[in-house]
Design a protein around this nucleic acid. Structure first.
Lengths: 203, 203
DNA sequence: GATACATTGTTGACAGTGGCTACTTAAGCG
DNA sequence: CGCTTAAGTAGCCACTGTCAACAATGTATC
């Protein structure tokens, strides 16, 4: 990335540079097909250099996927901190943040949920994914304690929430939420239905 | 696939054979990476032969994805025909059939929703995908007419349904619906929540 | 029937890929 | 200065998708 001339022999922080470059590549939403050699090329380094820092291609991708989950979690935390008071609004705000993360980083989001096909680093990845799930669990638990959420096994309700936002995110990324079929604000509409289903009718 | 000796020079129906072979390969749930040459190999034909029937790899995949959507639609129709009478049960039955199709054909289902990244055959593919959506629309419309579904823009409610089943299917395929986190029957639980949200509280 | 054409498969080549190993260079340290 | 060793390089391998040239087969026309 810098002039080949004044670049020191030892990159110094190639590991971080490789990850950064890869994330950049994921961002440019071309029908991009990720190639390790291209990453090295852009980082201004030889095609085998990344192997000094990552076991193989899948290893790099797994690491990036984990970073993705971390960032998603951060996005959700940020959204939660500035969420309105009512539970319904809090859920809506969070769901919007979730889907926005996916549509803003489509390639990354896709990677996050397909990287463990290789199953190498599976466990660590799943842990991070499920950490996101915990955010949802916590909210519902609070809602249930306050009586505004139906008294049902909370995991099932959280599963409904996660499944819905994950599905909507994927459909949006795939361009399947075309307005003429699905209305102008499909996410908000779907969220209304969900919140209705979560809500305690007794209140 | 037959003896190389008595195999005639012209295959006769290579197009169908290639598709069939590819579907078989998708079925074997190895961390399989789909390669055109392997398809040709299994079909007992030279590595370039498929190019006489498909423009390129993406073309073949797109065709297979379309077949996938057709089959999904058939599965749903079959499930609908033998569905119980109440609307709630009908929706549940259909949703179960949908998710089952995905978990039974994970590689195919994944392909169906990532094939159009190449965007070549995008429109035809989207048409078939949205045809699946129509099944859902029809049910809800009927339910609304009968008064058992909330009076809301129907597209939004259908979007909620599609998003939920699609999301649950993907999570299940990715092995993210681990019981200790998400309960023993996450799909049924999620469906309860959804149906609750769809249902008309006045009835 | 024989001949010209079109279709379908085959072969061989090309560039590009992931993965690997042997080599070279730079940097630190006595 | 000479040594070790981490960082980066060059080059090999097997493989892929794709294309162009060629061969075998079917079909239509005279």
């Amino acid at each position: 990335m810098q002039d080949a001339a004044n670049r020191p022999y030892h990159h110094g922080d190639l590991r971080r540079a490789v990850i950064e470059t890869a994330l950049d590549m994921l961002r440019e939403e071309k029908g991009w097909q990720f190639t390790l050699r291209e990453v090295a090329r852009r980082a201004g380094v030889s095609h085998a250099a990344p192997y000094k820092h990552f076991p193989d291609k899948a290893g790099l991708l797994a690491e990036i996927a984990m970073i993705g989950f971390d960032r998603l979690r951060e996005s959700l935390s940020a959204a939660k901190s500035e969420a309105p008071e009512t539970l319904r609004d809090e859920i809506t705000t969070l769901a919007r943040a979730y889907v926005a993360f996916g549509t803003d980083n489509p390639a990354l989001y896709r990677l996050m949920f397909s990287a463990e096909e290789g199953k190498a680093v599976g466990m660590h990845l799943n842990e991070r994914a499920l950490a996101v799930f915990d955010v949802l669990l916590e909210i519902l638990r609070r809602g249930q304690a306050a009586g505004s959420v139906r008294r049902r096994p909370i995991e099932g309700q959280a599963a409904a929430g996660w499944g819905l936002v994950h599905g909507m995110t994927m459909l949006a990324i795939d361009g399947l939420l075309v307005p003429e079929k699905v209305g102008s604000a499909p996410l908000d509409a779907a969220l209304s239905t969900l919140v209705e289903g979560l809500g305690n009718p007794a209140t």
